[in-house]
Structure formats: C-alpha cells, structure tokens
C-alpha cells in the first residue's frame, strides 16, 4: 500500500431532534489506504451511505473528523469543500446521474469544465477517458441510448476525469445485472485502481466481495469489524 488516503475519526451523525433524533453513524473510526479497494458493507439503514457522505465532504458530521492529506476536511469552507470534491474525490452514483440532454463525452467532460478547462481540451480528455472505459465509440450518443453497463462506464469515466485520489462508488452493482456488475467492478479493480488512488465502495452485494482488499461491516451506525477481502475460499 502507498500510504493513508482517508482517516475517519470518531464520526458521529444524527438526524432530527428530540424524540425524533436518530443516529445514523455512531463513533466510527477507520482508515483507507491508497492502492486499495475498501468496501463498506451492511444492511439497509446501517449508515454506510451516510458514512460515505461524511468522508467525501458532502454531509457535515455532528462530531468527529475526516483527514485527507493530513487536513480535516470539515474545517474547510463550503467553497473549499466544493474544490476538495472536485479535485480529490470522484463519485459514481448508484443511479449514475448522467445528463440525458448531453452527449456521453460531454457528460464525462463535466468535472474538467468545472475546473475551468477549455471546452475543446475537456472534450479531448473526455475521449481519452472514454477509451479507458472502452466506450469511445459511444462518445456522441446521449446516455439514454446506452445500456446500463455502458452508462456505468460513463459514470466511471466522469468520476476519474478529474484524476481524483479517492473514488467513491455507491452501490455500483445495484442498477446492473449480476454479470455486468461483476465485470464492471473487475474492470475498476484492474484499470482504475492504482497506487495513487483509493477506491471506497458501498455495497451489500456479496458477489463482488472477491475484489475487495478490505471489507468494513456496519450495522446500526457502528462498525462490526474490518475483514480482509479477496476471493472466497471454498
């Protein structure tokens, strides 16, 4: 492993107040390293998506800290947090959230455009990323004309377009059939993961556990344990 990518310390998050107060994350601490596929696994309502939001600078915790590059991201202003997400984190959402009115290439180029890169330069880079995910020939089609697996690849290309250190996948196989889901995660493991990047995946799909380096199990907002991933031993 090439070093510490994210360090979460005693993260607590609750929603509501008074009798309606519900704890989603209760004192969670963990570390994820560069070069690893780190899974967060647990049943629905276990707090894994909330935890993902806390460590990616999307949802402010009630207490605790998230260190990236030795800096607590929650000490940043909202504009700094937006820059942090743009430059350090890549997101692959469960429903992809691609823009149906833009072409595939334009979708991939969005983070680059947000970084104020020139339009043509962004489109050229987008083509390179589409080539990496193997759908360069779909560059000028709108996402709605692509299959679920292809849309997932577009979302991955968009996530890696800004060359983030941390890549966040939220239930990457939830919208795909079993085979496609496995192929996508396998592809990510072999083509997207590298020594300079940490991939954090939230999932409860045990069929893709074999690609994990470590799996953190959660329940009721707490960590039950962190196991080593890899192929199942029969």
């Amino acid at each position: 492993m090439a070093g510490l990518a994210v360090k979460a310390h005693e993260l607590i998050k609750w929603f509501g107040e008074g009798e309606a107060k519900t704890y989603a994350v209760r004192g969670v601490s963990f570390e994820a390293d560069f070069g690893e596929m780190f899974y967060i696994e647990g049943p629905s309502g276990s707090g894994k998506t909330t935890l993902l939001s806390l460590i990616s600078g999307i949802l402010r915790p009630n207490s605790g800290s998230v260190l990236v590059d030795d800096k607590d991201i929650w000490s940043m202003t909202s504009d700094q947090l937006a820059d942090f997400r743009l430059n350090k984190v890549g997101f692959v959402f469960q429903d992809f959230h691609l823009f149906p009115r833009l072409t595939t290439a334009e979708n991939v180029a969005i983070p680059l455009i947000l970084k104020r890169r020139d339009w043509n330069e962004s489109m050229n880079s987008a083509m390179e990323y589409l080539e990496i995910v193997g759908i360069k020939d779909r560059a000028n089609l709108p996402p709605v004309k692509l299959s679920g697996g292809e849309q997932q690849r577009v979302a991955i290309a968009r996530a890696i377009a800004s060359s983030p250190d941390i890549l966040i996948f939220d239930e990457p196989t939830a919208s795909l059939d079993g085979d496609t889901g496995r192929r996508i995660v396998e592809f990510v493991k072999h083509n997207v993961l590298n020594e300079m990047r940490c991939i954090i995946i939230v999932t409860h799909d045990s069929r893709i556990f074999e690609y994990a380096d470590r799996i953190m199990k959660m329940e009721d907002g707490r960590i039950l344990g962190i196991e080593k991933g890899g192929p199942h031993e029969e």
């Binding site: 909202s78 937006a82 743009l86 997101f91 959402f93 959230h97 969005i110 968009r158």
Partner: peptide, 16 residues
C-alpha cells in the same frame, strides 16, 4: 434537480 445535486456533489459551487 437531481442533476444539479449531482453537479454539486461533483464540485460545482453554488454561484456556478
């Protein structure tokens, strides 16, 4: 709206 939310998550600032 969801797409604007996604843009926000990706790193678009409110003023953008």
């Amino acid at each position: 709206l969801e797409k604007f939310g996604a843009l926000k998550a990706i790193g678009a600032k409110g003023k953008e």
